[in-house]
Design a binder for these strands. Structure first.
Lengths: 232, 232
DNA sequence: TGTACATCAGTGAACGCGCGTTCACTGATGTAC
DNA sequence: TGTACATCAGTGAACGCGCGTTCACTGATGTAC
């Protein structure tokens, strides 16, 4: 594999890969991750099915590429929101990240479902999905860490942390690479899973007959959960 | 369709339907909702594929039956927990429902993914899934309503509710059939989506490298979110 | 109690289809001397 | 600058497979008189 992207061939290759992934993402919309088909992708590109194997060794490899792209997309949306809000109050910054994640999800519901929905049965996520997957939650946690430093976050533990939970939180702390107390880390995780819970519940249609103004509902719930996160 | 279940034939039919659904659920485990195949179901039952059409007019109809069963199963788990905790303090009752939902999810991850995971693309849920889908959240909300009556729930609004949100909450109130103020209803919805968010995030593997004692972590987070729900 | 008929479960063959992946190949594009 | 060779993208045919659904059928089970 040549890494030099300057030669015309390498450039064409990069473009071709992008075309394939684009066609595959469009297919995801119609048919879901299980139904993703190399032949259909090839068809859309006006190319014989075996040609796709020049670029992806198998269907699963293509699926992995889409998953990584999804994580990277939501990750950079979150990171951008964090970067753009430096210096602002913590509650505002948290809401900005949360909004960025939701907006990405609403704009790309099928990519969202691919990464945060049901796992594809029989598909084993390879190791190189791990670090892209962490980008978005890490960006969110960084806001909380900054907030602790700025004194915007109530840090007094609400309840004692049982030993096994402490052990797991310690492991997570090591994984994310910066210090948050058990209390604050647990609150951050709750805020993060709560955010995805809200997004999924609405996006997957469980409030279809109840909520008409999804933006307003989200904002209202976000204000509430932000207060819970920061300890008011 | 004879409804009298007393005749041997009708009884055999009921059993056969249960067998088919059982085989289909087992398939779901291996292959997901997209991959659910009538032929494979027939194969497992030692029967020719067209025989299944005696019981389900199409693949989608079988899928719908599984979805309804899933909603009914989690719904009755929740209802049982509610019924078993009558008279106990509200925070305890809420935790009991939440635990019941999670335990069902952990015991039946594929049914959980079927109903609360990514929607099956191209599958349109028919109207008769609606009321089973409401059973679990309704059971949970009933606990909150009882809690309000018992004075266990802080009912003072934390923030004004924007008009469009109020309109949607009114619609939901009408749908669930009992009164909860905007404030309490919004908190209940947040608690419910937060619960599913936690369950999904862990069950779908996003904390695979972080949490080892999932039960302890859940209990700890549940204590926190219960306090948020009840307004401390 | 016995007979004639209707209902039902399941059979077996067939339809038309799409899938992932392999393989030997052609012809164009790049590279080395 | 020109030639010989290597690399690459894409072709086309083929493999073996499973799918949903339809249809005419057989034989067993139930029902009505």
């Amino acid at each position: 594999m040549p890494i030099d992207p300057s030669t015309p061939r390498a450039q064409a290759r990069v473009e071709r890969i992008a075309e394939i992934k684009g066609a595959a993402r469009r297919q995801l919309v119609e048919v879901g991750s299980d139904g993703l088909s190399l032949r259909a992708v090839a068809r859309e590109l006006g190319v014989v099915s075996s040609a796709v194997y020049r670029y992806f060794a198998s269907r699963d490899e293509l699926l992995t590429a889409l998953i990584i792209d999804g994580y990277d997309a939501v990750g950079s949306a979150a990171e951008d929101a964090v970067a753009a809000s430096v210096g602002r109050p913590t509650d505002e910054r948290w809401r900005a990240v949360a909004r960025a994640v939701r907006m990405w999800a609403v704009a790309n519901p099928h990519d969202y479902a691919l990464i945060y929905g049901s796992p594809v049965p029989g598909y084993q996520a390879p190791a190189d999905t791990v670090s892209p997957a962490l980008r978005a939650p890490l960006a969110a946690m960084a806001v909380v860490r900054d907030g602790v430093e700025a004194g915007d976050v109530e840090v007094t533990p609400a309840s004692p942390v049982p030993r096994p939970v402490h052990a797991d939180l310690t492991r997570i702390r090591a994984g994310i690479g910066f210090d948050l107390s058990d209390e604050v880390l647990a609150r951050s995780l709750a805020a993060w899973t709560g955010l995805l819970g809200h997004i999924s519940y609405v996006l997957f249609g469980h409030l279809r007959n109840g909520i008409t103004d999804e933006d307003a509902f989200f904002e209202h719930q976000l204000a509430r959960s932000t207060a819970d996160l920061l300890g008011r």
